[in-house]
Simulated scan of single mutants.
Amino acid sequence: MSNLPQPRKLNNGREIPELGLGFWMTPESKSSDIAYNALKVGYRHFDSAQWYMNEKGVAKGILRWLKEDPKNNKRKDVFLTTKIKEPNQGYENTKRSLKESLEKIKGLGYFDLVLIHSPQTNKATRLETWKALQEAVEEGTVKSIGVSNYAVVHIQEILKWEGMTIKPVINQVEINPWLTRQEIVNFCHNNDIEVEAYSPLTRGKKLNDPTIVKIAKKYGKEPAQILIRWSLQKGFIVLPKTTHTERLQSNIDVFDFTISDEDIASMTHDDEYQVFCSWDPTTYRG
């Protein structure tokens, strides 16, 4: 068993590390050091967004690592994501804002993945955004494209659209043992779309849950590691985040054990719907 995240194959043949580092609410001033230190302990997957205002900082940390050892540290081994925020959606806006995002990561050359951040616009705008992203893949500035916070109805818009030439590779949504989103997960997996779980640590709200604490003690792990491992064993690509350098190591130390099926079942609450983020755009219909 490898002690580092393994690659997961996407529906376009490209690969993505199964565990990444989220950068939501990470200040630009801290993001460079966090990205650099994360690379030093084994992370190769970074999740930024236009809304986060830290694309430049994350890129700066990656560039520092690349320049440190050009012989061994290669751009192709790092997976970088950004997301198109709602005000930047639509065909022309997406093309313009993506150009601005690419300028912020100058030196890295391309994004490995670009997602539509949420469906909170309208059908015409969402499909125009998808058209612009497809063109970015054709131009080579983006390698893969997908969506975030999309419900089944929103994904179907793309899949049924006559203008679709590239299928989404990923849907990134908030998922944890109290928010399992079975309908979305089943639909994505049935359509060969990977599911990425953000806020897998429930924003810290469930780290003292008695069942989680008990299972953590059983495996000699921390509650956060148990929650991350749950996502991995459920088949999700998982995106824990931290602004504390010392926690980078523990969040990636989840590949030397396996939680039993019985314990996974005792952690999983399919009948609950606990959203720990301040929004749930999957419920948006417009």
Rank of each mutant, 00 (worst) to 15 (best):
G57L: 01
I237M: 15
F46Y: 12
V195K: 13
N11K: 00
V185P: 15
L98Y: 01
T245S: 12
K167C: 03
K143W: 13
K83V: 10
Q249A: 14
K106W: 02
N54V: 00
D256Y: 11
K205R: 02
I215K: 06
W279Y: 08
I184Y: 06
C188H: 05
A216L: 11
L133Q: 02
T268L: 09
F276D: 03
A197I: 00
E157S: 02
K131I: 13
G109P: 06
E128L: 10
V173P: 03
E128T: 10
T180M: 04
I62C: 09
L19R: 09
E55L: 00
T202F: 03
L10Y: 02
L21I: 09
C188W: 08
A49T: 09
V213E: 11
S101Q: 04
R126Q: 12
S231L: 06
P5W: 08
K217D: 11
T129L: 04
E138G: 10
N176H: 15
N208G: 05
K83A: 10
M164F: 11
K76H: 09
T26P: 12
E128D: 14
P177D: 01
D271E: 13
K40T: 09
G204C: 06
E222P: 04
L4P: 02
S144Y: 05
P27I: 04
T180G: 00
M25L: 05
Y273T: 05
P240H: 12
K234N: 15
T125H: 13
L159V: 07
